[in-house]
Design a protein around this nucleic acid. Structure first.
Lengths: 364, 364
DNA sequence: GCAAATTGGGAAAGCGCATTCCCGCTGCTT
DNA sequence: AAGCAGCGGGAATGCGCTTTCCCAATTTGC
């Protein structure tokens, strides 16, 4: 038994398909109450479910919102996805998910697939990359998005505008002040740390990472400090872990090992800034595996303020980002932002916690 | 400029729409190479993207997989979603996301929406509830799913079969041995713990929670111990936190407070089993906020082995579940499982870590 | 009281594509 | 050399729905 159709409902109710359509969906013209009732009853008894594909074809709009993320299991993207989902629900649309691991080629394919499905809008959440290796991929992605926009699609981008977009038409970006916030974090840390600073960054060319690094360096400069060393690694927990191992070796070489804290003129404690929370956690794990303790042997800060990580000990200093709201704002037509081209901004908040506390003796 | 159509491509290539269709999609009949080339070039120059809705209408299949979760930002669901996404990609389909906060009514609506979109299959990941308040909702959900199946849909369920399904036709469940694993966990913990056991459970009637509780109690019984006290609360971090506060009070009353460990005849340490990791983390936070330390003042174990939580300290004892694989297996037609009705099983693994270590003096 | 405007319903034309059927053609058999 | 299979392409139909257009029956205006 195939799903029943509008025509069947109409026949059962003794009306024309046109009338049935009018009563079952919010048409401008509403048939008489008696007829409406009859149709509704017929639909009910048949368990009629409109065929959204056919509706979409006829109306040329689908009620779909495409969402592109690197990895849905990454808590950063998961939080954004929650916001997108909430906004979609508000517009009563559904969200179509695509994960791309950040590959521009996959992103292009996802955009094409969304376009094929005639998604009303698409939000693309992963960080953009400016690596030369990705140059062609980025151009193709931009071309695909431009085409999508020309055909009437709306796209929301979180973070950075897509590199190489032809015009602003149809784009809408949620700006995250990564650079400013990182600078502020650096300044606050500089106020209480005497030691050297090190940055654990993502791959070079990853815009979000680059921005945070640049901001942090600027903050240090503002405080009259020399620029920090930058370690480039993967933008995930594993990357953080590897960098952490390297730093552990460095710290160990200086003599920060073992329980006995006070060696001859203990070198000032290292202060590590990982460009996102997950990397910070990885780095922490690495340091710990080498017997180092936070914040006694090194201070560490992250970025994002991932919810699941808030109970982590020592509590991680970070920059809180309203991830869910970012997701909500990123869907075109939602939020109080300007409709159409333009940038909606959100703000974050530097949140200092135990992992960067000065002193560093383990408290109770 | 609206997106170009097959007909336009055909006209540009000087062929009929039928031929164009044949070359641009994997039809059984492949037109001659010269014609094919011409069509392909025309399509390319027009930037033709097939209208998936129209294709779906014509073929009556959509290439969509519907996924229902409680909350996509919950790491448990996010991990499953990743698996589903991977399987979908393998079948080159896209996944449609719906979040329902566990409400059967919302789930029913989501199923209807998926049916309307003619999703090829749907996987429903949230825990089923047997509460009487949800009884009608569950029945309606089951009815909707049954109808979906009768119309040729395939549904994959993780955990429990949907309560009230009329027949097995079209269903496919990924069974998680919650009860057995919880029992095993209890037995292993019982072997090294002298103190009392307490269970922090989700709301009564939540099948996953109930299973884990039952299993844990059985494990205790196997070890010759009396059943543990059960605290029912929310199935999330907040629930765990609240229960943790209550337990902290209980422990405090016994005298486990402060730094000085050895009071007169220190009572045996409490061993807490939270039915999922996130709740365990919440409980831990609560205990800590009261000055209690894990595992010194209480042992605690969770369930799921959430990836993001693995770096948590003290490392959480838990039961590892192959979440991503569960997601993969849940999508009908994927995995090596039996196609059609049937249960595919996965196994987990009790993973004892520091949070339940006996002794409990803080190590280095 | 009659023309004009309004209402309420049906017929029909697509939306963009897949697919079945059909037809002219080439190449083969006997 | 005539007949037949087989192939390559096009015309036409239908997927399920929306929406314009059209027509008959009422209301309204003066």
């Amino acid at each position: 038994m195939a799903a029943s159709t509008l025509t069947e409902v109409a026949r059962l109710a003794g009306v024309s398909p046109a009338t049935a359509s009018r009563v079952l969906n919010g048409s401008a013209r509403t048939p008489g109450p008696d007829i409406a009732e009859r149709v509704r009853k017929a639909a009910d008894s048949l368990g009629y479910i409109p065929n959204a594909q056919a509706q979409g074809l006829a109306k040329s709009s689908s009620g779909l919102i495409g969402l592109i993320v690197h990895d849905i299991a990454d808590p950063y993207f998961a939080a954004i996805a929650r916001g997108v989902q909430a906004a979609a629900r508000h517009q009563n649309k559904m969200v179509l998910l695509a994960t791309t691991a950040g590959s521009p080629a996959d992103e292009r394919a996802a955009v094409a697939a969304f376009a094929a499905r005639r998604a009303d809008s698409i939000v693309i959440a992963g960080s953009r990359s400016a690596r030369t290796a990705d140059k062609q991929g980025n151009a193709e992605l931009a071309a695909e998005l431009d085409r999508y926009c020309r055909n009437g699609g709306r796209v929301g981008v979180v973070g950075h505008a897509v590199v190489g977009a032809e015009s602003d038409e149809g784009y809408h970006v949620v700006g995250v002040p990564n650079e400013e916030l990182a600078a502020e974090l650096a300044r606050e840390l500089a106020a209480s740390h005497a030691g050297e600073f090190v940055i654990i960054a993502g791959p070079e060319g990853l815009l979000t990472s680059d921005d945070r690094v640049r901001g942090f360096q600027r903050g240090l400069a503002d405080a009259g400090l020399p620029p920090a060393d930058v370690l480039h690694t993967g933008f995930d927990r594993t990357g953080g872990y590897e960098a952490g191992m390297e730093l552990a070796a460095r710290i160990g070489a200086h003599g920060g090992s073992g329980q006995a804290g006070a060696e001859a003129a203990a070198p000032p404690r290292l202060c590590i800034f990982a460009v996102n929370d997950v990397m910070a956690i990885g780095a922490t794990a690495a340091l710990r595996s080498k017997g180092l303790r936070i914040p006694r042997d090194a201070a560490i800060a992250g970025f994002d303020d991932i919810e699941t990580l808030r109970d982590f000990r020592p509590a991680l200093s970070t920059v809180r980002l309203p991830l869910e709201e970012i997701g909500r704002l990123a869907v075109p037509g939602a939020g109080s932002g300007t409709v159409g081209a333009g940038t909606v901004g959100v703000t974050g908040e530097v949140t200092l916690r135990r992992s960067t506390e000065p002193g560093g003796e383990p408290a109770s």
